[in-house]
Nucleic acid binder design. Structure first.
Ligand SMILES: NC(=O)c1ccc[n+]([C@@H]2O[C@H](COP(=O)([O-])OP(=O)(O)OC[C@H]3O[C@@H](n4cnc5c(N)ncnc54)[C@H](O)[C@@H]3O)[C@@H](O)[C@H]2O)c1
Ligand SMILES: NC(=O)c1ccc[n+]([C@@H]2O[C@H](COP(=O)([O-])OP(=O)(O)OC[C@H]3O[C@@H](n4cnc5c(N)ncnc54)[C@H](O)[C@@H]3O)[C@@H](O)[C@H]2O)c1
Lengths: 225, 225
DNA sequence: ATCCCTTTGTGAAGCGATGCACAAAGTCGG
DNA sequence: CCGACTTTGTGCATCGCTTCACAAAGGGAT
C-alpha cells in the first residue's frame, strides 16, 4: 500500500528516465537549427518513439506543453536537463586506461555536456604518467584521494574483468554510488549503489540470435534500437 | 531426453534472449573451474538474477534440467550457445576506425566466441592502410565488396554521428540486417533490420539522474545492472 | 464572442515480464 | 522398494510499460 502523500511525485518511471536523454539530444539538434517549438509528433519521430509515449514521458516532468501548439524547444531542453541533473557538473574518473579507457578519455562527446573527466587511473607502471587528452594517468594507489579531493561522483570501470570487482569495492568504500561498468562481470554492490553496464559481447550475441532466426524461419518481428 | 523435433518453440521473449549471454558467461566460468552441475539457485546468483526467472528463461529452450540435481553445465553451455547461434562463426565488419573503432578491433574478448572481425573500413586516407590487430584498414569505397565477399552479416558502426545514417543505408543496401551502432543518432532502417545501440552518453545521464535524486531526497530505490 | 482547428494530457485497456508458491519429478540412503 | 529430501518447471497473481482514443485546452480567424 502506498501512502497518499500529496507531495511532489518524484516517481518517474525508469523507462522514461532512459528515454529523456534521447529527447534531449533531439531537442538540442532542433535548437541548433533554430526551431522554436515542436509538436509531440515531430519530436517523437526525431527520437524514434511513439508520440503517445513521448507525451506521457514528458507529463511526468510537468505540463510544459501548450495545447494546439506544442513544446517550446529551449524551455523543454532546460526542464529535461534539470531533471536529469545536467545543470550541474559531474566529475568522472576512468579506471583502467587500456584500449577502451583511452578511447573514452579521448572522446569529446560526453565531456561537452555536464560530465568532466577528473581523473585517469591505472595499475600498470608503463601507463601511469602518460598524458591522455590533457590528463595525466595516475596510479591506482591514489584512487581514494582522487575521488575525495576532486569530488568524483561517477566512476567508469574499464579494467580487465578480473580486477573490476576489487576496484568496484574500493570506489564504493570511497563513497561513490554511481558506476558505469565496461568489464564483462556482474558486479556485486551494496544497496544504494547504482551500476550500469555496457557489454559489447552481449549486444553481439543478441544480434546473432536474431540473425540466426532470420536465416531459419520466415516469421519474425525485429528492430527496437 | 528431448528430440530435436521440428516444433521448436521459436517464441523466446526478448527479455530472456538478453539474459542468455549472461547465463552463458557464468556457465563458461563454472566449466573452466571444473563444475559439473549447477542448481538454478547458484547459477542465478552468479548471473545476478532471480532464480525463478532463470528457470523460466531456461524453460523456453527446453527441459534441460534434472529435478533434485540441477543443470549439467557443459550441456547447458551447448544448448544456450546453439540457441544464440554461437555454434557458427559470424563475420563482423567495423566501420569507422577512430578511437573507439581501434579499441574494438584490438579487443580480444568477442573475437574469442563466435565472432570474427572480417573487415575494418574508414574514409580517412590517413587511416586507410594501417594495420590494426593484424587487419588492414580498407577504404569505405570497398564496403559492399567486403561485405559480400567475406560474408559479413553484422556491422559495427563507429563513425561520427553525421556519417552513421549514410553508412547504415549502404550496409543495409548491401544486405546486412544486423547493426551495432555506437554513434549517438537514431538510425532509420527498414523492417527486418535489427539495430542495437550502445550509448555511453545516455548511460551517464541516467546515472546522473539517480545521483541527483540520492543527493536530494531520502526516498529511493536503486541498482539494477 | 464564437467557431474551428490543432495538439496536449490522461483514463483505460492491452501486453509482456516478474516473482511467488507448489506440485511433479527426480535422487539417494537405508 | 520406500520414504525423505532436493530442485525443477509452471500456473497464477501482479506489476510496470505501451498504446489507443478522446475530452480538454489553447490559438487564430472572422
Ligand atoms: N576494448 C573493447 O573494445 C572492449 C569492448 C567491450 C568490453 N571491454 C572490456 O573493457 C575492459 C577494458 O578493455 P581494454 O580493451 O581496454 O583492456 P586493456 O587490457 O587494454 O586495458 C585494461 C587496463 O586496465 C589496467 N588495469 C588492470 N588492473 C587494474 C587495476 N586493478 N586497477 C587499475 N587499472 C588496472 C591495465 O593496466 C590496462 O591498462 C575489459 O574488461 C574488457 O573486457 C573492452
Ligand atoms: N570514443 C568513445 O569513447 C565513444 C564513446 C561513445 C560514443 N562514441 C561514438 O562513437 C563514434 C566514434 O567515436 P570515435 O571517438 O572513435 O571518433 P573518431 O573521430 O576518433 O573516429 C571516427 C572514425 O570514423 C571515420 N569516418 C568518418 N566518416 C566516415 C565514413 N563516412 N565512412 C567510414 N568511416 C568514416 C573517421 O575517419 C574516423 O577514423 C562517434 O559517433 C562517437 O560519438 C565514441
Amino acid at each position: 500500500m502506498k501512502s497518499p502523500s500529496q507531495s511532489r511525485d518524484r516517481g518517474i518511471p525508469e523507462a522514461t528516465v532512459a528515454r529523456l536523454p534521447l529527447y534531449l539530444r533531439a531537442l538540442n539538434g532542433m535548437a541548433e537549427r533554430g526551431v522554436a517549438t515542436v509538436s509531440s509528433e515531430d519530436l517523437a519521430m526525431a527520437a524514434g518513439v511513439n508520440s503517445a509515449k513521448l507525451r506521457k514521458d514528458l507529463s511526468h516532468l510537468g505540463s510544459y506543453g501548450t495545447r494546439g501548439v506544442g513544446y517550446d524547444v529551449e524551455y523543454l531542453v532546460y526542464q529535461i536537463s534539470r531533471e536529469l541533473g545536467l545543470t550541474q557538473d559531474w566529475a568522472v574518473a576512468i579506471v583502467g586506461v587500456g584500449n577502451l579507457g583511452r578511447a573514452l578519455a579521448n572522446y569529446g562527446g560526453f565531456v561537452s555536456r555536464g560530465f568532466r573527466v577528473a581523473g585517469l587511473l591505472d595499475a600498470d607502471p608503463e601507463v601511469v604518467g602518460d598524458d591522455i587528452a590533457g590528463l595525466n594517468v595516475e596510479h591506482i594507489d591514489v584512487l581514494e584521494a582522487v575521488i575525495e579531493r576532486r569530488g568524483v561522483s561517477i566512476v567508469v570501470l574499464a579494467t580487465p574483468a578480473v580486477a573490476a570487482q576489487e576496484v568496484c569495492d574500493r570506489v564504493v568504500a570511497a563513497g561513490v554510488t554511481s558506476i558505469l561498468n565496461f568489464a564483462p562481470v556482474v558486479l556485486s554492490v551494496p544497496d544504494g549503489v547504482d551500476v550500469r553496464k555496457v557489454d559489447l559481447s552481449i549486444e553481439l550475441q543478441i544480434l546473432a540470435f536474431h540473425e540466426q532466426r532470420k536465416a531459419g524461419g520466415p516469421l519474425m518481428a525485429v528492430d527496437s534500437q
